[in-house]
Amino acid sequence: KLPPGWEKRMFRSNGTVYYFNHITNASQFERPSG
C-alpha cells in the first residue's frame, strides 16, 4: 500500500508507470516508501 496521497499512474504515450501525490502535487518514478 502506498503512503497517504500517493497513487500509481501511467503515461498513455509510452506506458511508463509513475507515482503522483495529489496532496503535494509531487510526482516520481520511484515507488514512495512509507
Rank of each mutant, 00 (worst) to 15 (best):
K1D: 15
K1S: 11
K1R: 10
K1E: 13
K1F: 09
L2K: 15
L2S: 06
L2F: 06
P3H: 02
P3W: 01
P3R: 00
P3D: 04
P3Y: 01
P3I: 02
P3K: 02
P3S: 01
P3C: 04
P3V: 02
P4Y: 12
P4V: 07
P4L: 07
P4I: 08
P4D: 10
G5S: 02
G5I: 01
G5E: 05
G5H: 07
G5N: 06
G5P: 11
G5A: 04
G5C: 10
W6N: 01
W6R: 00
W6T: 05
W6Q: 01
W6H: 02
W6F: 00
W6M: 01
E7F: 05
E7V: 11
E7G: 07
E7Y: 07
E7A: 04
E7K: 05
E7N: 03
K8L: 12
K8E: 15
K8P: 03
K8H: 04
K8W: 03
K8A: 10
K8Q: 13
R9A: 05
R9I: 07
R9F: 09
R9W: 03
R9Q: 05
M10Y: 15
M10V: 15
M10D: 07
M10F: 14
M10S: 07
M10L: 13
M10R: 11
M10A: 11
M10Q: 12
M10I: 15
M10G: 07
F11K: 12
F11W: 11
F11A: 10
F11Q: 10
F11D: 15
F11R: 06
R12Y: 14
R12I: 14
R12E: 15
R12W: 13
R12T: 14
R12N: 15
R12F: 13
R12A: 15
S13H: 14
S13A: 10
S13Q: 12
S13I: 10
N14W: 08
N14Y: 09
N14S: 14
N14H: 10
N14T: 14
N14V: 04
G15E: 06
G15M: 13
G15V: 00
G15T: 05
G15K: 06
G15Q: 06
T16K: 14
T16A: 12
T16F: 08
T16W: 09
T16L: 14
T16M: 13
T16S: 12
V17W: 09
V17I: 11
V17A: 08
V17Y: 11
V17Q: 05
Y18D: 05
Y18N: 00
Y18I: 07
Y19M: 02
Y19R: 00
Y19P: 01
Y19I: 01
Y19T: 00
Y19G: 00
Y19D: 02
Y19L: 00
F20R: 00
F20W: 08
F20P: 04
F20G: 00
N21K: 05
N21S: 03
N21T: 05
N21L: 08
N21V: 06
N21I: 10
N21H: 04
N21D: 04
H22R: 10
H22N: 12
H22T: 15
H22F: 13
H22D: 06
H22I: 15
H22K: 12
I23T: 07
I23A: 07
I23G: 02
I23F: 13
T24V: 03
T24H: 02
T24A: 02
T24I: 04
T24Q: 08
T24E: 03
N25G: 15
N25F: 10
N25T: 07
N25H: 13
N25I: 05
A26E: 13
A26V: 15
A26G: 07
A26T: 14
S27E: 15
S27K: 10
S27T: 14
S27Y: 15
S27L: 14
Q28L: 06
Q28P: 05
Q28K: 09
Q28T: 10
Q28A: 07
Q28Y: 04
Q28N: 03
Q28I: 05
F29R: 07
F29S: 09
F29H: 07
F29W: 10
F29K: 08
F29D: 07
F29Y: 10
F29V: 09
F29Q: 09
E30K: 06
E30T: 11
E30D: 11
E30N: 08
E30G: 06
E30P: 10
E30Y: 06
R31S: 07
R31A: 08
R31I: 11
R31T: 08
R31N: 07
R31H: 12
P32S: 01
P32M: 01
S33K: 10
S33P: 12
S33T: 13
S33Q: 12
G34Q: 10
G34I: 12
G34A: 12
G34L: 12
G34T: 13
